[in-house]
Design a protein around this nucleic acid. Structure first.
Length: 447
RNA sequence: CGGAGUGUGGCUCAGCCUGGUAGAGCACCUCGUUCGGGACGAGGGGGUCGCAGGUUCAAAUCCUGCCACUCCGACCA
């Protein structure tokens, strides 16, 4: 992408309404535009990041055996009356009427709808286990939206729903998601700790929140320090191995970790003082097992081996990609701006042309831009007619992991400058060496 | 939903108390000088001062109502 032709409305001043760093930087980098309280447009840079996060979430969901579908944002009130939640959900649910005066709602979650789909087609235990997920916009009419996309009213959520014959099967389904979540957050460069959580209005009796520690987190959390060094389950984890996954979950639940609502002071204080972590955290994922809470009232039953109909055991599993954008910035920024993890950055490499119109500089930049794009990298070529200082500031602000700085001074010695955003390290290399440094997107991902 | 605030050009804000017909910096356009960590000069465009009433010869400014947004708290992916 040539930045001279791109739409990236960078702000030099910080809009006053933004309190936390992620919100400030998202506005300054031109990632989002607020349209109403808790409702945002996603501008090109923000959308790229959101899509990259969704891609990681999707890959790990698929790896664990979940199957992607897409359900609508607008749902019928009748469906929610079946589960009894139409009246129970309260004012957080945005209720609307269509032209025929039919009662509709903008979905805050999809248990009812996915259960309706399931019961329409699945009749036998032989078709289980099943886990269906989608990545779709949700609306919850929060009393007080805040912190930008961290707590918006409209937000993007990946929600998965598992169906099993019995509780043991559902337990394994839960463990699959638990493991997939550990992998997902680790790939995003986040230290997310599973904590025993309250089940809230979704209901059920087994639930974990995945919490990223951050000073701007909304909730108070308590855990054992050793969680921060636990190893992530490997990419080749066998998701069909019941014992294997139970081992993963047992390990990741072996030490104390709880949110404020579930906090047990005595148990926490039993931890050696130097290992006690009391901090604030951002909830980036939440998983529930709720048994037959929806399958029973909605008649989602399958025939078991003995031919008898039984309601299926279900669980639901949520990750908010739009909230993750903010969480990633909270976890990765410095004075200069955002520091994205490599896999999530809106662009992989930025080429900074310090002197537009200088034949040698333009030529070298084109060679780098085209050469690296051909290798599969998402390239940002800063060919705007700006002064060098502005280009450095922009590249740092939007957090591109690698910058290749090209100007007449360096080229006179046959060199370009390679800069790493995260640590700020820079080195002078030849143009050929710069090209060779990046072997190709596929090759690098496997490393 | 309780409490506290704020609405003036794209952004940050001044002007309001003490009414007199709208300003600064940044951004934008033109020209020139510049050009390796957010340059400088000259010129220029852009605002029915959140909306609706009211008071007044005159309202961004005073009064009333409404709307929107932000922050603190209670509540939540």
């Amino acid at each position: 992408m040539r930045l001279s032709r791109y739409f990236m409305p960078i702000l030099r001043d910080t809009p006053k309404e933004a309190e936390i760093v992620s919100h400030r930087l998202m506005l300054r980098a031109g990632m989002i535009r607020q349209q109403s309280a808790g409702i945002y447009s996603w501008l090109p840079l923000g959308l790229r990041v959101l899509n990259k996060i969704s891609a990681v979430v999707r890959e790990e969901q698929n790896r664990s055996g979940a199957i992607e579908i897409l359900m609508p944002t607008i749902q019928s009130a009748d469906l929610w009356r079946e589960s009894g939640r139409y009246d129970a959900y309260g004012k957080e649910m945005l209720r609307i009427k269509d032209r025929h005066d039919r009662e509709m709602l903008y979905g805050p979650t999809n248990e009812e709808m996915v259960t309706e789909i399931f019961r329409s087609y699945v009749k036998s235990y032989k078709d289980l286990p099943l886990n269906l997920y989608h990545i779709q916009w949700k609306f919850r009419d929060e009393v007080r939206p805040r912190f930008g996309v961290m707590r918006g009213r409209e937000f993007l959520m990946k929600d998965a729903y598992s169906f099993d014959l019995d509780q043991a099967g559902a337990r394994h389904a839960y463990n699959r998601m638990f493991t997939a979540y550990l992998r997902t957050f680790a790939r995003l460069g986040l230290k997310a700790i599973p904590m025993r959580a309250d089940t809230g209005p979704i209901g059920g009796d087994l639930s974990h929140e995945f919490i990223v520690l951050a000073s701007t987190g909304e909730s108070e959390v308590f855990c054992h320090k050793d969680y921060l060094d636990f190893a992530t389950p490997a990419a080749d984890t066998d998701f069909d191995s019941i014992e294997g996954l139970q081992g993963v979950v047992d390990k990741w639940t072996s030490l104390y970790a709880a949110t404020e609502e579930m906090h047990e002071k005595a148990a926490f204080e039993a931890i050696p003082a130097e290992s006690q972590v009391s901090a604030r955290g951002i909830e980036v994922g939440h998983i529930f097992y709720f048994g037959t809470k929806y399958s029973e009232p909605m008649g989602a039953t399958v025939a078991g081996p003995d031919g008898q109909l039984v309601p299926v055991h279900m669980g639901s599993y949520g990750i908010g990609p739009s909230r993750l954008v903010a969480a990633l910035i909270e976890a990765g920024h410095d004075e200069g701006g955002i520091v994205w993890p490599d896999e999530i950055a809106p662009f992989d490499i930025a080429v900074l042309n310090l002197k537009i119109g200088d034949a040698a500089t333009d030529g070298a930049c084109e060679q780098l831009y085209r050469g690296l794009a051909a290798k599969g990298y998402d390239m940002a070529y800063d060919d705007r007619d700006e002064r060098p200082g502005g280009k450095f500031a922009t590249a740092d602000l939007i957090g591109i992991p690698w910058q290749i700085i090209v100007g007449p001074k360096g080229l006179a010695e046959g060199k370009v400058e390679l800069k790493r955003r995260a640590g700020g390290e820079r080195e002078l290399v030849s143009l050929e060496a710069a090209l060779a440094r990046f072997p190709g997107k596929g090759a690098e991902t496997n490393a």
